[in-house]
């Protein structure tokens, strides 16, 4: 293939500072941790806004209380989501420098806009949470604040997705023209977006089930808390079921040779995909049982199943990237060893 004409820069002369396999393990682990909290934030912000809208429409105190609890969790988890995101960003910058830096620079201004977008969204989330009672008589304004935060939070993933998809397609870089153009220029973007947003909602629902199950051990749940717990189970069940469809849509959006790796061409990747489908169905079954008859044993079984799914998903996501980049990395290798002749100090005149 004609990779020699592509704009892939040579790697830096300073070597990658650690064992590559270890760093790849860490990027999967820390990314999964980060994205779970992003899922929580997105899901609770969206959940709060939808519940508040329903509360306003039906004048329901219960729905309004449910919305308020969601908003509290959204603003707490967003702080953790941000700090946890530092590690995967650090590792991707170090081990995929040639690809990730180029894809970042290609959407440089959109990438910088993340700072303003996220500060605004986070401040709005605080206003939304802390003004819940004070603005009881200004419900419309209060709703708008939450709605604006939600819109920003729903938009932000697109910037990240464009970046991590664009890094997989060096041959498409020369035709790309900024962030908005890239949304349609690269394949997979919208499929990834749908898969991610649905995963967020399902994860948020599942969190509500876990959180209130734990709380229930110490005290009886209020009516509102009980509704959040069971509502969470329902959301998690239906959306996880939907993921079987949206996951498949994402799979078929991959380049054919990559897709086939998951469909028999590569034993490990095929096994991972089958395992993820099996686990997803199992989780749905467990959630179904919970929705009918909540038993403590289901708590650990579903938690284990959820953790495994997230782990397998994170691992597969990494393998997709590796498969796409393999031919390029062979042509433009990373700097693994320190060569002092390439790292000379400036001679002072």
């Amino acid at each position: 293939m004609g990779v020699l004409q592509l704009s892939i820069p040579p790697d830096f002369p300073l070597p990658i500072p650690g064992n590559l396999t270890l760093l790849q393990f860490l990027i999967v682990l820390t990314f999964v941790l980060h994205i779970i909290f992003v899922n929580f934030t997105l899901s609770f912000a969206t959940g709060a806004v939808i519940l508040e809208a329903s509360a306003m429409k039906t004048h329901s105190r219960r729905l309004d209380d449910m919305a308020r609890i969601c908003s509290l969790h959204a603003s707490i988890h967003k702080s953790i989501a941000v700090v946890l995101g530092v590690a995967p960003l650090l590792i991707i910058s170090v081990i995929y420098t040639q690809y990730f830096y180029t894809s970042t620079l290609l959407i440089g201004k959109a990438w910088l806009s993340l700072i303003i977008l996220l500060i605004t969204a986070f401040l709005l989330l605080y206003v939304y949470k802390f003004s819940w009672e004070k603005w009881e008589n200004k419900k419309g304004l209060h709703f708008l604040v939450g709605f604006a935060a939600m819109l920003i939070l729903l938009f932000v993933p697109l910037i990240f997705i464009v970046n991590v998809v664009s890094m997989l397609y060096p041959e498409k870089w020369s035709g790309a023209n900024g962030f908005f153009h890239s949304l349609l220029h690269y394949p997979q973007i919208w499929q990834r977006y749908a898969h991610f947003i649905l995963a967020s909602l399902a994860t948020g629902g599942f969190y509500m089930y876990l959180y209130f199950s734990v709380k229930q051990r110490k005290q009886t749940l209020s009516d509102v808390e009980q509704s959040l717990k069971l509502g969470g189970v329902k959301v998690a069940f239906w959306i996880t079921l939907l993921q079987l469809v949206f996951g498949s849509l994402l799979l078929i959006s991959f380049d054919r040779n990559i897709m086939l790796l998951f469909m028999g061409d590569d034993a490990l990747l095929t096994a991972l995909l089958l395992l993820s489908v099996f686990l997803t169905i199992l989780l749905c079954a467990l959630l179904y049982v919970v929705s009918k008859n909540d038993r403590p044993s289901m708590f650990y079984a579903s938690l284990l199943c959820f953790v495994l799914i997230v782990g397998v998903m994170g691992w597969m996501r990494h393998e997709v990237r590796e498969s796409y980049l393999k031919p390029y990395i062979n042509e433009y290798p990373r700097t693994i060893e320190m060569k002092k002749e390439n790292i000379k100090p400036v001679n002072k005149q």
């Binding site: 702080s79 700090v83 960003l89 996220l118 500060i119 605080y126």
Partner: peptide, 11 residues
């Protein structure tokens, strides 16, 4: 710190 502080740090 969790809004402007954190995001300008990452920024």
């Amino acid at each position: 710190t969790t809004t402007v502080g954190a995001m300008t740090g990452v920024g």
